[in-house]
Amino acid sequence: MYTRILFPTDGSDVAREAFDYALDVADAHDATIHVLNVADTNQDSLTMVEGRVVDVLEDKGRGIVDDAADRAADRGVDTVAEVLQGDPVKTIVDYAAEYGIDLVVMPTHGRRGLSRVLLGSVTERVITSAEVPVVAVTPDGDHEFVYPPRAILVATDGSRAAGLALESGIDLARETGAALHVLHVVETATLGFDVRSVVASDQLDAKAESILREAVDAAETAGVDVVTQIAHGRAYREIRSYLSEHGIDLVAVGTHGETDFSRSVLGGVTTKIVRGSSVPVLLRRESESDAGR
């Protein structure tokens, strides 16, 4: 399923913790992991050492990727280690396309606010730019990540982007033997208690049932059993609750390819899930070609 996995890193403690998860993924799929450090050319990194110009960022990056390669070798995982100069987001996205990367794994500082993701806003922008799935990992000392996952949750609103997330969830469940859960949340916060709100609620429930029926059909066609549920309330809260109540190890969601991450699928729900999820989040981006289907 995955043969080439890309792990961009800045060598931070958070990145080192997330790398353990990336190695678990690579090991489970017998994949090669590409460790990439980008020396940001937007920074003034040139200095003089013994009469020669040395890019200190590139030198530091070489130490970071070499350390990661040594850790991968200890696990028996094949590694490609690269240090490149350029704009971090463009370099990461271009690298993924050039080398046929199947999956990008990136750490975040999500619990401290999305503005502090690894390498500034790089993770956010890669999520909304990459053509391949991205797994965002927020290391948390109180939670041990598990891969292969025992249970996968796909949170869906029936959009094309959510459909892509469902495809990834089904493929991964079939590959790993994980239990597949699909959740649709009917947002009730804006509904009042008059007759019109009752009608609107019934319509939303009917739509939810239709969305889940399609998900079940897709899973069963692929030979995967699925558990479905409709919840009512704030979507991100219901999704988080489901994660803890059902022992979910990975959640898959969709996102539109917008430059403003707050405009992702499910309103701002994807953003909040990335920020606060206790498990890795697999994100599938809806590209312009996908939107036209």
Results as ranks from 00 to 15, higher is better:
Glu175Cys: 07
Leu283Met: 08
Ala130Gln: 02
Phe19Trp: 01
Gly192Pro: 05
Tyr99Pro: 00
Arg213Glu: 06
Ala173Asn: 06
Arg4Gly: 00
Ile101Thr: 15
Val25Gly: 12
Ala200Val: 13
Gly177Val: 00
Thr123Trp: 02
Ile248Ser: 12
Ala215Arg: 09
Arg234Ser: 12
Ile273Phe: 07
Thr188Asp: 09
Thr221Met: 03
Thr156Cys: 11
Leu266Arg: 11
Val265Phe: 07
Thr123Leu: 03
Pro133Gly: 11
Glu245Ser: 12
Val227His: 12
Gly100Pro: 01
Arg150His: 04
Asp10Gly: 09
Ala219Ile: 03
Gly276Ser: 14
Leu23His: 06
Arg213Lys: 13
Tyr236Lys: 13
Ala96Val: 04
Val274Lys: 14
Ser121Leu: 05
His143Asn: 14
Leu84Cys: 07
Asp30His: 15
Val216Tyr: 03
Thr228Trp: 00
Leu84Thr: 06
Ala231Gln: 09
Thr47Arg: 15
Ile92Phe: 02
Ala235Glu: 08
Val281Arg: 10
Asp225Met: 06
Asp67His: 01
Ala231Lys: 13
Gly192Leu: 07
Tyr236Ala: 15
Met48Gln: 12
Lys207Pro: 00
Thr259Tyr: 11
Val25Ser: 10
Met1Ser: 12
Leu57Gln: 15
Ala206Cys: 03
Ser277His: 04
Leu166Asp: 08
Ser12Cys: 07
Leu283Ser: 13
Phe145Lys: 14
Phe19Val: 03
Gly276Met: 10
Ile33Phe: 02
Ala200Asn: 13
Ala22Lys: 10
Ile5Ala: 02
Pro107Asp: 05
Asp24Pro: 05
Ala189Phe: 03
Ile101Trp: 01
Ile5Leu: 04
Thr3Trp: 02
Ser262Ala: 13
Asp290Ser: 10
Ala218Cys: 05
Ala28Asn: 09
Ala39Lys: 11
Glu167Leu: 08
Asp157Tyr: 05
Gly11Pro: 04
Thr91Val: 06
Thr188Trp: 04
Leu183Gln: 08
Glu209Val: 12
